[in-house]
Amino acid sequence: MTSKALMAPSFFSQNSDGVFVGNDPARGPWSADHCHAGPVTGLAARAAEIEIGAEKMLCRLTLDILRPLPLSGLRVAAETTRHTRTLATTQITVHDLDNTLCAQGTSMHLVRKDLGDVPTAAVVPLDRAKAVPGPFSIGVGLHDKPYFGQFLDVAYPPGFDLHPGPKTLWMRTPNLLEGEQQSPIQSLCALADCGNGISWNAPPKEMGFMNTDLTLNVHREPEGDWHASESISHWHSSGIGMSQSVLQDEKGPVATALQTLVLHPPKA
Score class of each variant (00 low, 15 high):
residue 39 P to Y: 13
residue 233 S to L: 05
residue 29 P to Y: 07
residue 106 T to H: 06
residue 248 Q to D: 05
residue 112 R to A: 09
residue 199 S to C: 04
residue 3 S to K: 03
residue 92 I to Q: 00
residue 164 P to Y: 12
residue 159 G to I: 12
residue 202 A to E: 05
residue 262 V to A: 08
residue 180 E to L: 14
residue 90 T to D: 00
residue 259 Q to S: 11
residue 38 G to L: 09
residue 210 M to L: 15
residue 49 E to G: 02
residue 251 K to M: 07
residue 60 R to N: 13
residue 29 P to C: 11
residue 141 G to D: 04
residue 165 G to I: 08
residue 27 R to Q: 04
residue 226 W to G: 00
residue 243 S to L: 03
residue 1 M to E: 11
residue 92 I to G: 00
residue 38 G to K: 10
residue 5 A to Q: 02
residue 116 G to A: 01
residue 120 T to Q: 13
residue 88 A to K: 04
residue 121 A to L: 13
residue 187 S to H: 10
residue 217 N to G: 01
residue 149 G to R: 01
residue 215 T to F: 13
residue 31 S to A: 13
residue 154 V to D: 00
residue 266 P to T: 13
residue 27 R to F: 05
residue 259 Q to C: 14
residue 57 M to V: 11
residue 225 D to R: 13
residue 259 Q to D: 05
residue 267 K to F: 09
residue 156 Y to M: 14
residue 170 W to Y: 02
residue 122 A to E: 12
residue 197 G to W: 09
residue 265 P to K: 15
residue 63 L to H: 09
residue 21 V to P: 00
residue 254 V to N: 01
residue 151 F to P: 03
residue 203 P to S: 07
residue 219 H to I: 08
residue 213 D to R: 14
residue 13 S to T: 10
residue 213 D to L: 14
residue 190 A to S: 15
residue 161 D to V: 04
residue 65 I to S: 05
residue 128 R to M: 03
residue 167 K to D: 00
residue 253 P to H: 03
residue 71 L to E: 00
residue 109 H to N: 01
residue 236 H to G: 04
residue 264 H to A: 15
residue 98 D to V: 01
residue 37 A to S: 14
residue 244 Q to F: 15
residue 216 L to Y: 03
residue 127 D to H: 04
residue 127 D to E: 08
